[in-house]
């Protein structure tokens, strides 16, 4: 009987322990009080076409799209801008992350994304997707969050977009090197026409090796400023060949002049035998003088 009571007591104790265990099995402690955080950025306004934001441009033109990072907190924050789709249209390189000082508002921290439209047929539209994410505070909890990140998609098209010609992720684009065609060959001429009409101005490569060939160009002066906040950059992005030629000719003339001067000033005197007591200004200058 005593054993039975003892056994019941044990069962009761075990039950109590089990109950306590059950209710306190997971004790979750808030390690730090984190105030409200905010994250965000502004970006160039892109007018919509068919309900989608589309930069309508011209083949070969480069367009600047801006992301304006903001940080309304007091402490600096790191922001990463990652372009996924359409990365191969970019002609500039983004930093791994941007340290945005506290209290950065409005458009005081612009990040430029330069997108170049390849020479493709009108209507071709490319999807450009990028994300902006912020680093997190040091916090501990069962669930700890980073500040909200953003995914954003815009489109860039050659002329008005034809959605049947949507390219979700542009492949690396390499400008085709012009192949000289034999002069006087009608067949060759036809071939040249074929390459251009088939959109041959670009070559789409499947190998990853070509991805790094996308040229990264230095910023060029803006030649136009659209009201929608998009900067159109001079598509030429080419040096002034005429000016370079002119400067080259000038330099050549200068070099020739200097060489001529050197010839008369230095080369000829090498053969001059100086005779003591005679002036170098003597009529013998430039001629061999026998002692």
């Amino acid at each position: 009987m005593e054993k039975e009571i003892i056994a019941k007591d044990k069962v009761k104790k075990l039950g109590l322990v089990r109950t306590i265990y059950l209710f306190l099995s997971i004790s979750l402690i808030l390690m730090a009080v984190i105030p409200a955080v905010s994250a965000g950025f502004a970006s160039s306004y892109v007018p919509t076409v068919d309900g989608k934001p589309v930069i309508v441009g011209e083949a070969g033109q480069t367009y600047s799209y801006y992301v304006y990072l903001q940080n309304l907190d007091n402490d600096e924050i790191n922001n990463a801008i990652t372009v996924s789709n359409g990365k191969n249209l970019m002609t500039n390189t983004l930093s791994e992350y941007y340290t945005v000082p506290g209290n950065t508002e409005s458009d005081s921290y612009p990040v430029e994304i330069k997108l170049k439209l390849p020479s493709v047929e009108s209507g071709t539209v490319y999807q450009v997707t990028y994300s902006v994410k912020s680093s997190s505070e040091d916090a501990s909890g069962v669930v700890t969050f980073s500040p909200v990140g953003f995914d954003k998609t815009i489109y860039i098209s050659v002329g008005n977009p034809d959605w049947d010609k949507l390219i979700e992720d542009a492949q690396p684009i390499v400008e085709e090197t012009p192949v000289p065609t034999p002069s006087g060959s009608s067949g060759g001429g036809g071939g040249g026409g074929g390459s251009s009409s088939s959109g041959g101005a670009i070559t789409i490569n499947d190998t990853d090796d070509t991805t790094e060939t996308t040229p990264v160009k230095t910023p060029k002066p803006k030649v136009d400023y659209l009201s929608n906040g998009l900067d159109v950059v001079n598509p030429a992005d080419q040096p002034n060949v005429g000016a370079m030629l002119f400067i080259g000719v000038l330099m050549g003339l200068l070099i020739i002049g200097l060489l001529s001067l050197g010839y008369y000033k230095f080369k000829k005197p090498k053969n001059l035998t100086y005779e003591m007591g005679k002036s170098l200004d003597s009529p013998a200058l430039g001629k061999e003088t026998k002692i």
Binding site: I34, G40, A42, Y45
Partner: peptide, 25 residues
């Protein structure tokens, strides 16, 4: 006219979610 840019901005009131005490199961 003047163009107003797009603004993506979200504030979250807390960064940490906690369960003070829960039971197994």
């Amino acid at each position: 006219s003047v163009t107003v840019n797009a603004l993506d901005f979200i504030t979250q009131d807390i960064l940490t979610i906690t369960w003070g005490s829960v039971s197994v199961g």
